[in-house]
Design a protein around this nucleic acid. Structure first.
Lengths: 212, 212
DNA sequence: AAATTTCCATGACAAGTGTCAAGATTTTAT
DNA sequence: ATAAAATCTTGACACTTGTCATGGAAATTT
């Protein structure tokens, strides 16, 4: 029967495609590692390959060019980033409990994934110069903004308070706070995480005056 | 008389030194121009020299190395940046007038000096990787924070309101807001300046609830 | 088992990088 | 005006960069 043959062909092709994409993300992960350590300006394709199990020629087999690789990295970064705080939203049952969880999670992110986030700020700055980066950066920015919004909306619900500040403003505030803390943390300031926590609590107390 | 000879010697030496520094800042200005157009990662010394009246070899006559040049640029940037809003503080006589002036000045900065500010964010991101940049970046950050603080403190005075939010938090909020607007503006969003103005006004109305 | 496609390593290329040394040129001092 | 010191240009160096072509190894298909 012809249909069976076609079906098998499609299956084998899909398997090949899956394997291709699997290796692509494997290489993207290695690239992410290198990028987060060196930064965009100092990262070369050879260096990326050296931090992987393959040679530098392979990169041009799986990626069209350097921009293509970076973009794959960025998307890979996003996937493992935007849902980080969602479990807090799902599990919290009171305003205070959720505040504690959120503040703690932010502080942990600061210390545990500092290098990954400095890469994010680096790439976002690159997008100010390189138009090819803008669409993906804007999309990630939007995802992060939504993430913050989900948290604040849930907090408002728990506090029984109305929420008037728009998502962009809220995101800008938390992002600015985190960025500042990251710079201090990477500069060796051991108190950066604690300062970040205090800053967030203060900010929340201003957003929800009644809940304090 | 020997003292007269010494005096003349000293004067001539100072004149030489002045000329040396003058040319240094002239080259730093050209470098600033190139950097703000291409970004840190894509700027080479030859490109900088090409945007000046001199050849590339002269850069090593006036600067020890590339980092030295970048640092000179950064300091030059700072000088023309941190006092930008001070005349608003000096001239404003009412809360509303000063708010209008501040908001308008921020919007104008966004549109008129977008490229210079994207360089600032680029270099700040670089400082997350390159320790050599950190001290100067931190110093500029502090200056900008102080600038914001002077404005907010004056506004509090004019509003007759107490001011409880600490300077780092205030700076983080305004900086985050500006950064977001800059990305939109450079992406071609014509409404970025207006959004920034609205965001600042909203933020101020939350900082000073009574003055609204 | 043979043939064919996929996958990967090697080496090379042209272009560009920071850096520096050797002179030419201009300015300053004698 | 002559000597000395400064400023600037030119050209080269060792190295790195992204990209690609060739060919070998491995896997898949026939």
């Amino acid at each position: 029967m012809a249909s069976a043959a076609i079906e098998q062909l499609e299956r084998s092709q899909r398997r090949r495609l899956d394997k291709f994409n699997e290796r692509r993300t494997e290489l993207a992960q290695a690239a992410l590692q290198t990028l987060s350590e060196l930064g965009y300006a100092r990262t070369s394709l050879r260096e990326i390959a050296q931090n992987s199990a393959f040679s530098h020629g392979v990169l041009h087999y799986y990626f069209a060019d350097k921009v293509d690789l970076i973009m794959c990295c960025v998307r890979h970064y996003k996937a493992q980033c935007v849902t980080r705080y969602d479990h807090i939203i799902a599990s919290a049952s009171s305003y205070d409990e959720m505040t504690d969880g959120f503040v703690a999670a932010m502080a942990q992110t600061l210390t545990d994934e500092a290098t990954l986030h400095r890469l994010w700020y680096d790439l976002r700055a690159q997008s100010l110069f390189e138009p090819a980066f803008r669409a993906d950066v804007a999309e990630i920015d939007k995802s992060l903004q939504d993430m913050i919004w989900r948290i604040i909306a849930r907090l408002a619900e728990l506090a029984g308070a109305p929420q008037t500040l728009p998502p962009p403003l809220l995101y800008a505030m938390f992002d600015g706070l985190f960025q500042q803390a990251l710079l201090k943390h990477l500069s060796g300031d051991a108190g950066a995480a604690a300062e970040l926590q205090a800053g967030i609590r203060l900010l929340l107390s201003r957003i929800f005056p009644a809940a304090a």
